[in-house]
Design a protein around this nucleic acid. Sequence first.
DNA 1: TACTGGCACTCCATACTTCCGAGTGCCAAG
DNA 2: CTTGGCACTCGGAAGTATGGAGTGCCAGTA
Lengths: 337, 337
Amino acid sequence: MLDDRKLAVLRAIVEDYVSTNEPVGSKALVDRHNLGVSPATIRNDMAVLEEQGYIQQPHTSAGRIPTDKGYRLFVDRLSTIKPLSKAEKRAIETFLTGAYDLDDVVGRTVRLLAQLTRQVAVVQYPSLTRSYVRHVELVPVATGRVLLVLITDTGRVEQRVIETFHELSEESVAHLRALLNTCLSGLAFGDVPGAVSDLPEKVSPEERPAAAAVLSVLLETLVEKHEEKVVFAGAANLASVDFSRTFRDVLEALEEQVVLMRLLGESADSSTVTVRIGMENPDEGLRSTSVVAAGYGVGDLTLARLGVLGPTRMDYPGTMGAVRAVARYVGQILAGS
Amino acid sequence: MLDDRKLAVLRAIVEDYVSTNEPVGSKALVDRHNLGVSPATIRNDMAVLEEQGYIQQPHTSAGRIPTDKGYRLFVDRLSTIKPLSKAEKRAIETFLTGAYDLDDVVGRTVRLLAQLTRQVAVVQYPSLTRSYVRHVELVPVATGRVLLVLITDTGRVEQRVIETFHELSEESVAHLRALLNTCLSGLAFGDVPGAVSDLPEKVSPEERPAAAAVLSVLLETLVEKHEEKVVFAGAANLASVDFSRTFRDVLEALEEQVVLMRLLGESADSSTVTVRIGMENPDEGLRSTSVVAAGYGVGDLTLARLGVLGPTRMDYPGTMGAVRAVARYVGQILAGS
DNA sequence: TACTGGCACTCCATACTTCCGAGTGCCAAG
DNA sequence: CTTGGCACTCGGAAGTATGGAGTGCCAGTA
């Protein structure tokens, strides 16, 4: 259906359009790429490509620009991920080493990715579900209130203030803390719910309501809150691209945690780069953008995802290379700490 | 120099320009505000105001718009802070109650403020220097690495991974932890450096290097890192206003922590609202914006600042009201938890 | 002295027109 | 299947009115 030359034409159109941001015509094509044929031939090919929905013209008698479908074909079959240059790799390394806690790792990563791709970068915090409990700390902060601090083996620290309603003595808190630690230390997060179910029975009756409160918050923290945390950076890079109303929509979408989460999509295999183009995006305001994302984690374990958001008119091979590289390095950093 | 009517004219110009975003002429002025004089008289007044630098015309034969100096006079002498409506107050309350940790409080606050003012909100995390140490936790996370967790009386939790270089036994860690806690619990952060100076001498020689590493990180955490943390929200609100190149500059400035810090300015008395207009801003990219900021804290103690950034053409009374109100509520929330 | 109406003038926006050229589709010939 | 030729389309740039909001100034009035 599409012979080799037509594919070459599509590839050339995508590449030219990405770099010039102007509809590309048949003449310009034969000039810049040495396809050994005349413009008229290219025009025939383009007519076919248009009929099949891979390219379109903004108005009659203008050049062609790729459609979402065209980009999709380009990404799937016509391009290969571009490895980073030596300099870029070095930049990643120097930028990411020296991070001193998880917040810092994530923060640096998102800024790095934004800078590298000159687009908006999005990074999800590593999931807790695959982590192990390293330590649980319970600290009274006021009467009727204790602070629960949860430390994971990946160095992540979670905190919640808990209303116990009943006053708790120092000893009760200490007791509860000891109980929790012996009960939970080393446990995978997923196994925690099962392990604590009988815990209230192990404490004296007057401590029981407080223990129940602590437990309910603990479980809540584990399952609910944390898949959600996502940060982004590089919004300024949006300005250079396209503005108009789109632009406001995109910014609004970016500030919605929920949207941001969906943006990165379902977890695929670690460090496989996935691309979502234009209309393929779930969110309304992002219909004119593309998302390049990859999972990252330690070993085979995908802990979370990170990615880049930009205009559909984007340098896919380069962006995919950057995303893949950063995802790998972050994995290494996490494994090392 | 400027009689009452001229001041009234300036006020009217500011108000009209803010609400319509169009240069305001003499005729429109007498129509909308009932100053009891003719347009010609107003023109004379405007000529004087222009000569003194309070207003200017974008081009000959257009209406006048306020200059930075004009806004300054307006804010200082011609307007009063507008209290929030009942509904808005209720909104603040419902929005801020139910926050479960410091991150959450700050996150909600910044979103609330952005929504309330329809501008970009900026919130600085409460300073640590005025806090007290509630608890110190030391957890080994890998050989040669321990995690230091610092819990404050305001419920803030700080964490850092420390390279100890030497391996530490469980007992050593426990010993160090106990030592730190007895030494530091209840201490004001400012007093910590003095209190720990002789601590390395209290441990056995083989633990000493590790203890030193822990201490140096501890001190670093206390003094350096934390004044810095600032977040913002509502960038989408920038889009509606002015774009052009300015816009990119502003976004870039917002993503720089350092700039963001300077933005809020020096700490004045708690809940006194300060305004910085246009050129008064320290940062290059923000010369066409104004910042309305206030300190917040518990009681007389100013813990940090928060504020709003918008175009110089801004509803100052309303924005100042919102900032002041939010600052107060946040103080209450912090005091309560 | 302070205000007012009148008047000539300025100049920005807007709309309308013209015009160029890049790009197209189609066709007949190689 | 490819190619050169050709008539056609149409968006964007550039030029040209035109209307109206707004100004500054001045002479007249209270």
